Computed example of a mutant assay.
Amino acid sequence: MYSAPARILSVGTSLPQNRYTQKEILELFHVENPIVRRIFQASHIEGRHLYLPEPDENGVPNESQSQLLSKHRKGAMELGRAAVEKALDRSGLKASEIDMLCCISSSGFMLPGLTAMFVRHFGFRTDCHRMDLLGMGCNAGLNGLNPVTAWARANPGKTAMMVCCEINSALYVFDNKVGTGVVNSLFGDGCAAVVIRAQVQDSPLLLPEILFFSSHLIPETWRAMSYHWSEEHGKFYFNLDRDVPYVLGAHADQPIAKLLAPFGLQIRDVSHWIVHSGGKKVLDALKYTLGITAHDIRHTVSLLRDCGNLGSGSFLFAYERLLKEGKVKAGDYGVMMTMGPGSTIETALLKW
């Protein structure tokens, strides 16, 4: 056993200033395909915060791959700073007091990575331990939280921070295809930061302990969510298979069972579900397989409605909404769950 459990001290999130309703996006870029318009206007997403360009002379977005990489870097710096500052303020810390920094992103590529940029500009120490996690997709937040938690346990009293930055508007193509429309209707931009430390519960706040992680990979569906290079558009694009929600839903009970079993728990013992906002069909499939209700995932549902799919940091946005609700009690168990490429399901067990 560890001398002190790893706990979540605080979380901070940020979004671009500009928010667009789905209808506004359709009108801004003159989308005429009736099927795509119906997808955009589905009731489960009302609007998204995005870094959108002005339409070109043909009334469509037209950004080169170079411009998109620049957008990702600038957006991650802007939103990253805001999320980091919020998380630090809520934990009463300064950037110079962070001993380990992990940054996660799948919506752009940088070398050096975001951790080096954040150290340079945000006041983190130059001897801060760093880790950049790239290209794992929407599940990556829990893939990162696992080693960050292990680092905190191995270094009790020292403080780690994980930052998920996704500028999804920096990864797109624009055409009249239905598949393209599905992807372009779903994702939003956002950044989330979380502070972790191994310590005893000596705070008047309820700080959840991170107990355990469980992963599940479905390798036969490895292409279901994947990046590709488009020769036609001269940029990368994201492919999303239509069967993804059902594949993820059908396997969700397996990592959950492995997560809960070591503690003698069952699904009915879980008070709080903190789930990635992957889309309505994904959430419906999870509800069916796990036997949980819309109320159980209300924070994820409202996040999807307000912001769309925010990628790797979306579960931290949902966690923040749970905390703001103010209904967590000592002794409660919570499950974090993210899903993404691979196809992958990641889970973590919390106890307040």
Results as ranks from 00 to 15, higher is better:
D89T: 02
G179N: 10
H129Q: 07
T159G: 05
P156N: 01
M162E: 12
K86S: 08
G144C: 06
L205S: 04
A87K: 04
V119W: 00
P204F: 06
A95G: 11
I98S: 12
H121T: 15
N155L: 05
C191G: 15
V183H: 11
G181R: 03
L114D: 00
Y172G: 12
S169Q: 04
N168A: 08
I196K: 09
M110P: 03
E166G: 02
D99I: 01
N184L: 03
M100C: 07
G141C: 05
C138Y: 01
K177N: 06
T180E: 14
N143V: 04
L186S: 09
C138D: 13
E209S: 12
A160S: 06
D189S: 15
F118P: 01
F109L: 06
D175M: 05
A140Y: 06
G123L: 11
V178A: 11
V148G: 08
S203E: 06
V178I: 13
W151Q: 14
M136N: 15
Y172S: 12
G92C: 10
F109Y: 15
A170Y: 03
Q201V: 03
V200Y: 14
G135Q: 07
E166I: 08
S105W: 02
D132S: 12
R81N: 13
S107D: 04
T159S: 13
P204C: 08
